[in-house]
Amino acid sequence: MTEMAGEVRAAAAPVAARPVAGLSKAVAGWLQAAPLAAILLAFLVAPIAMIVVVSFWKATEFSIIPAFSFENYEFLFGSPVTYRVFLATFKYALVTWAATLAIGFTVAYYLAFHIRSQTVQIALFLLCTIPFWTSNIIRMISWIPFLGRNGIANQALIDWGLIDAPLEWLLYSDFAVILAFVHLYTLFMVVPIFNTMMRIDKSLLEAARDNGASGFQTLVHVILPLTKPGIMIGTIFVVTLVMGDFITVRFMSGSQKANVGRLISNDIGLLQYPSAAATAVVLLCTVLIVIGILLRFVNIRKEL
């Protein structure tokens, strides 16, 4: 019954609207896009606007008070901790980016150009993507038996005679944080790079070979330039995920290291929402500037 009603409505629409086809198309487009727009407005735009507003508010121990004060920003920019923490955040992002790019590119290259059967290709690609659909928290926890003081890594190194005492910096350190980032986010490099590589015309590779290019020369002068958009999309994902993270740093460093996300979540824990909001605004601006720079190199919509 409802289906019929829908058909009648849909059937009536084009007839009635034919003289102003352009406008009716726009209206139909708006109607179809409305739910997406509504959700993004309510749960993305409004919350961000709220954060900006609250960043000018004041806080007591128990509540937050509407105000227009630059106190939070003054405190933020006046504290040396802020600069240290932002620097640490950039460091995490840079090291993770380099590692995920190196690993992700190699894996994508192997899948795209060395696997000849399409079925095997799909199977191996899925093998790489499946962990993405499982819990990040569990994947972090699962490093404990490996990196712990009496963990597998230390035991193995001692058994092999490489070290005498367990290494203390494996777990709860920058090393552990970055290892977890690479573990969680390399996939975000593999997928877009693999996607662009699969669209490279194979005849270009043959042409390079016919003209006497070695495998390595083809990689550097043909494949790498053509893969740049994929690399850029992967970079945007990895950099923003790492910069906005707070939970990986907290868990893998045993609360001994800090990044901007943790600064925000600590303030939230203390119910200092205005201060958290001010830090969040600065973080958001930083992330947007980084993305703005990266987007100059790629047109995302063309790449899907």
Binding site: L36, L40, L44, I51, G261, A277, L283
Partner: peptide
């Protein structure tokens, strides 16, 4: 439709804006 570009960039922004901001703001 008019405004498509803006909505698209909003959706992309939704992907790259740190999750904790959404959490805090909502």
């Amino acid at each position: 439709f008019p405004g498509a570009g803006l909505l698209f960039y909003l959706a992309i922004a939704s992907l790259v804006i740190p999750s904790i901001l959404v959490s805090l703001g909502v």
